[in-house]
Simulated scan of single mutants.
Amino acid sequence: MSDMFSGTPGNHVFYVVFTPTDTANYDAVRDILVTVEVAALPPTSFCNALRNRA
């Protein structure tokens, strides 16, 4: 799960739980497989400035 915080580009798979508001009449659904695609951000002018310092 460390990728979740680093924002590593690519597809990341998570298992989630849906809990309905009306738990008296409906059950929670567990182990729903969710894929989240993290896209790479384009370089910023700050990143370019750091690259040019070297």
Rank of each mutant, 00 (worst) to 15 (best):
V36D: 06
P9W: 06
T19C: 00
V34S: 06
T8S: 00
P20E: 01
A39I: 05
N25Y: 13
F18T: 06
A28N: 10
V17N: 14
G10Q: 04
F18R: 04
D3P: 05
S6N: 02
A49N: 08
V13R: 14
T44I: 07
V16L: 11
F5C: 12
Y26P: 09
P9F: 05
A28Q: 11
C47R: 14
S2R: 00
P43M: 08
Y15L: 13
H12N: 07
C47L: 15
F18H: 03
V13M: 14
A24K: 14
L41F: 11
N48T: 06
F18A: 08
P9R: 05
R30N: 10
V34W: 01
H12D: 01
F46T: 07
V36E: 01
G7A: 00
T21A: 14
R51N: 13
V16G: 06
F14Y: 15
S45Y: 04
N11M: 12
S45W: 09
V16Q: 11
D22C: 05
E37F: 04
S45M: 15
Y26Q: 13
T44F: 12
N48G: 10
D3G: 13
C47N: 13
A49K: 07
F14R: 13
A54D: 02
V36Y: 04
F5L: 10
G7P: 08
V17W: 05
A39V: 11
T35P: 07
H12T: 05
G10Y: 03
F14P: 08
S2V: 10
P9N: 07
R51P: 00
T44E: 04
N52C: 08
Y26E: 14
D27M: 12
E37Y: 12
V13S: 11
V17I: 15
S45P: 01
P43L: 02
A28F: 03
A28G: 04
V38E: 00
M4H: 00
H12K: 13
T8Q: 07
P20T: 12
R51H: 08
V17G: 01
R30Q: 04
T44N: 10
D27I: 02
L50V: 06
I32S: 01
N25H: 15
L33W: 01
A40E: 15
C47Q: 15
M4E: 10
A24F: 06
A40V: 05
G10V: 06
G10E: 07
T8H: 06
S45E: 15
S6C: 00
S45Q: 07
P20F: 00
V29T: 14
H12C: 03
H12L: 05
N25T: 15
N52E: 12
N52H: 03
N25P: 11
V36A: 13
A49D: 02
A40M: 05
V34Y: 09
T44M: 11
A28L: 07
S45H: 13
N11T: 11
T8P: 00
